[in-house]
């Protein structure tokens, strides 16, 4: 066991971690930030995606102790300062980009990384970028629409390839 400190959503946070403690366990169990989900625990589904030093990572596939001192952003840090939904979150609501909501934290974090790298993606680029985020409910079309809307672009009535 050792103490690990990271800046999480702008605040310095400290919690214990064993060698094997995953970032997602440290966030969920250490800090009680349960917005980040574990869908598969086998690095496949993307429900656990958070940002570490600005880049998307699967929080189930990185060790907490390795990230001592890192800057982490989770879904809890995506709302606006007044607590209202952030642009991407609002677009997911407006375009029905979620049903059960289990994949949504990871989807929103991946979408945020995409829009940072590529503020006006094409629909194909959105689909390609979200390849590592699996959704069992929506069929993806409305997620793609939400991301297009969040980027300030026109949303095609029927999503294509």
């Amino acid at each position: 066991m050792g103490k690990v400190t990271m800046t999480v959503n702008g605040k310095s946070r400290t919690a214990e971690a064993e060698g094997r403690t995953l970032l997602v366990e440290w966030l969920r169990e250490g800090l009680r930030l349960t917005g980040t989900h574990v869908g598969c625990d086998t690095s496949q589904c993307g429900a656990c995606v958070v940002h570490v030093d600005g880049a998307p990572v699967k929080a189930c596939t990185v060790l907490a102790q390795e990230l001592d001192g890192a800057e982490v952003r989770t879904i809890e840090g995506m709302a606006d300062a007044d607590g209202s939904l952030g642009t991407i979150q609002q677009a997911f609501q407006d375009y029905h980009g979620l049903q059960c909501g289990f994949c949504t934290p990871g989807m929103v974090m991946s979408a945020a990384s995409l829009l940072e790298e590529n503020p006006k993606p094409s629909e194909a680029e959105v689909r390609h970028y979200l390849e590592g985020n699996i959704c069992r409910c929506t069929g993806y079309h409305n997620i793609v629409k939400a991301v297009m809307a969040a980027s300030g672009q026109e949303v095609a009535p029927v999503a294509a390839e």
């Binding site: 690095s43 993307g46 570490v52 998307p56 990572v57 699967k58 990185v62 991946s110 390849e131 590592g132």
Partner: peptide, 9 residues
């Protein structure tokens, strides 16, 4: 390779 999150690490 994989997806963006895999490529970050």
């Amino acid at each position: 390779i994989g997806d963006p999150a895999v490529r970050s690490r």
